[in-house]
Amino acid sequence: MKTWRCAWTGFAPVSLAVSLVAFLLAYPPPAPGAEILKLATTTSTQFTGLLDRLHPPFEKKFRVRIHTIAVGTGKALRLGQNGDVDVVLVHAPAAEKAFVSKGYGVNRRGVMYNDFVIVGPAPDPAGVAGTRGVSAALQKIAALRVKWVSRGDDSGTHKKEKILWRKAGLSTSGEWYRSLGQGMGKTLQIADEMNAYTLSDRGSFLFFEARGKV
């Protein structure tokens, strides 16, 4: 599989939204060495390996153990809403703001950025390589009915994809478009097997590409 970066700004802020559960647990201070901090984050963040570097010093300083649950943004926010985790680290600004405005979380902060790329088969049957603008690239794919696979899992990447199709003024109905209900890794694998295009966050794509999985 080959990746093309279209000439469009594909950045989406990855934000930290602390749930009310974490806010309430902050008082009184936890007993030393006795607390587990539950973090729901995206698979995209997990794949970068960043958390593996950040967790040890944090755990040592605050005498907690971090239990990470890597899922799509939608599920991560639902875990926070249900009080099943203490902190959510996700990348869907509109959903995050709604989460906080409804009282499910507090202290939302942007901490880093993620960007997205359209990836597809090396022969590039839709001719999107070098296309200026993501809408133009999607229009080429839709016009030729070239296979496209979508995560279809209410993740931040899936939310972003739906926004991009809407901005391009395109419908995704038809046999050429397949919604999987899967995470990024599985979606990339299926896209590779089907010689299809998909939208991926760059971190996940590089993670799987480096391991020869796409």
Rank of each mutant, 00 (worst) to 15 (best):
K2V: 07
W4D: 02
W8E: 13
F11C: 01
L16Y: 04
L16G: 00
S19T: 15
L20M: 05
Y27K: 13
P29F: 06
G33C: 07
G33N: 13
E35A: 14
L37T: 08
K38Q: 10
L39R: 06
T42S: 14
T43P: 00
T45L: 15
Q46T: 00
F47N: 14
P57G: 03
F58G: 09
E59G: 10
E59T: 04
R63S: 14
H67D: 10
G74D: 10
L79G: 01
L79A: 00
G80K: 08
G83P: 04
G83E: 06
G83S: 06
D84S: 12
V85N: 05
D86T: 01
V90I: 15
A92Y: 12
G103Y: 07
G103V: 03
G103C: 04
G103H: 08
V119W: 00
V119L: 05
D124P: 08
A126V: 01
A129C: 10
A129M: 01
G130C: 06
A136L: 05
A136Y: 00
Q139G: 11
K140H: 03
A143L: 09
L144W: 00
R145H: 15
V146A: 12
W148I: 07
D154V: 08
G156Y: 07
K159G: 14
K160D: 03
L164Q: 07
R166G: 09
R166S: 15
G169Q: 08
T172L: 11
Y177L: 02
Q182T: 03
Q189K: 13
N195R: 06
A196N: 10
T198P: 11
S200D: 11
D201K: 06
D201F: 03
S204H: 07
